[in-house]
Amino acid sequence: METYQPLSRSIAGKKAIITGAASGMGRATAHLFASEGAHVAVTDLDHSACEAVVQDIADKGYSGSAKAWALDVSKPDAIGSTVVDIAEDFGALDILVNNAGFAIPADIALDSYEESWEPTLAVMLAAHQRMIRAALPYLKAAEHPRIVNIASTEGLGASPGNSPYVAAKHGVIGLTKGLAVDLGREGITVNCICPGPIRTGITDAISEEHKTIYAKRRVALRRYAIPEEVAHMTLSCVLPAASFLTGAVIPVDGGLTIKNA
């Protein structure tokens, strides 16, 4: 009989970068990772907002820690220099979570469409591969290197008036699968999470009444999620024990994508 082989479910001491970590799912993930003992680079556009998250994490007294970096992921040079700075400050990189994003409604018939297309693809697709490429030398040196890309259920289907976002999120899923194959030989896992209706800044403008109507009609669990519910799936993907999970596309959507009626 083969001996049972225990696998670690601890990220204590791991060094992680999270983009878009000043709010929503990114902030929840930063808190969760720090509570599990990881050292987290909280990155976002606004340094003061990142510092507020870092202070909140410190106030909680977690076993891990956090440090703030301002980062505009639409700027390739900023990505390169910031990743190097983080890796040198931390002494290593083990985990990368590509989470930064936003939503701009876009009508293909309008001239303003290009104003949505370019920044959407830059932040929510091109930036993912640039972050990965910048982090790759350090991830190759890690014992349990993990990459998680945050896509959306819009990467599995589409809503009207949202095609740049839909295109970007479909692209993230394709990028995840392609890089899972390419980086598998290095032992680097690359997975993708597709959140459904989540209570974040993107959905703040939707009234509670309309959130309730939508959830009861479309979501099996009949509610919106909180960011922490997505963060816990992200944590599951970066555990050392998640060593044979790669190229996965995981909906965290309360049953949205499987509900036909």
Score class of each variant (00 low, 15 high):
Thr3Ser: 05
Gln5Asp: 01
Pro6Gln: 03
Leu7Glu: 00
Leu7Arg: 00
Gly13Asp: 04
Lys14Met: 15
Lys14Asn: 07
Ala16Tyr: 06
Ala16Ile: 08
Ile18Gln: 06
Gly20Met: 12
Ser23Met: 13
Gly26Val: 12
Ala28Asn: 12
His31Arg: 15
His39Ile: 12
Val42Thr: 05
Thr43Cys: 14
Asp44Leu: 04
Leu45Gly: 06
Asp46Met: 10
Asp46Gly: 04
Ala49Glu: 15
Glu51Tyr: 07
Val53Ala: 12
Val53Phe: 09
Lys60Phe: 15
Ser63Met: 10
Ser65Val: 04
Ala66Val: 01
Ala66Met: 03
Lys67Leu: 05
Trp69Pro: 02
Trp69Cys: 01
Ala70Asn: 03
Asp72Ser: 06
Ser74Gln: 10
Lys75Ile: 04
Asp77Phe: 09
Asp77Leu: 12
Asp77Tyr: 11
Ile79His: 12
Gly80Pro: 08
Gly80Lys: 14
Ala87Val: 10
Glu88Thr: 15
Glu88Gly: 04
Phe90Gly: 04
Leu93Ser: 06
Leu93Trp: 05
Leu93Lys: 05
Ile95Arg: 04
Asn99Pro: 03
Asn99Trp: 01
Ala100Glu: 11
Gly101Phe: 11
Gly101Ala: 08
Gly101Gln: 07
Pro105Val: 03
Ile108Pro: 10
Ile108Lys: 15
Ala109Ile: 02
Ala109Pro: 02
Ala109Met: 14
Leu110Val: 03
Glu115Asp: 10
Ser116Val: 11
Trp117Lys: 11
Glu118Ala: 14
Val123Trp: 13
Val123Pro: 11
Met124Gly: 08
Ala127Thr: 02
His128Tyr: 06
Gln129Asp: 11
Arg130Glu: 08
Met131Ser: 08
Ile132Trp: 05
Tyr138Arg: 08
Tyr138Phe: 13
Ala142Gln: 01
Glu143Tyr: 00
His144Cys: 02
Ser152Ala: 09
Glu154His: 06
Glu154Thr: 01
Gly155Thr: 10
Gly157Val: 10
Ala158Leu: 10
Ser159His: 15
Pro160Thr: 01
Ser163Glu: 05
Ser163Leu: 10
Ala168Thr: 13
Ala168Gln: 03
Ala168Pro: 05
His170Thr: 12
His170Asn: 09
Lys177Ala: 02
Gly178Val: 06
Gly178Arg: 07
Ala180Gly: 02
Val181Ala: 05
Arg185Gly: 13
Gly187Ser: 02
Ile188Trp: 02
Ile188Phe: 04
Cys194Asp: 14
Pro197His: 10
Arg199Gly: 01
Arg199Trp: 00
Ala205Gly: 14
Ser207Leu: 08
Glu209Asp: 15
His210Arg: 15
His210Ile: 02
Lys211Leu: 13
Tyr214Cys: 06
Lys216Asp: 07
Val219Asn: 11
Arg222Ala: 13
Arg223Tyr: 07
Arg223Leu: 04
Ala225Glu: 13
Ile226His: 09
Met233Pro: 01
Ser236Trp: 06
Cys237Gly: 01
Val238Leu: 06
Ser243Asp: 07
Phe244Thr: 00
Leu245Tyr: 01
Ala248Tyr: 02
Val249Pro: 05
Ile250His: 06
Pro251Asn: 14
Asp253Leu: 08
Gly254Asp: 09
Gly254Glu: 11
Ala261Asp: 09
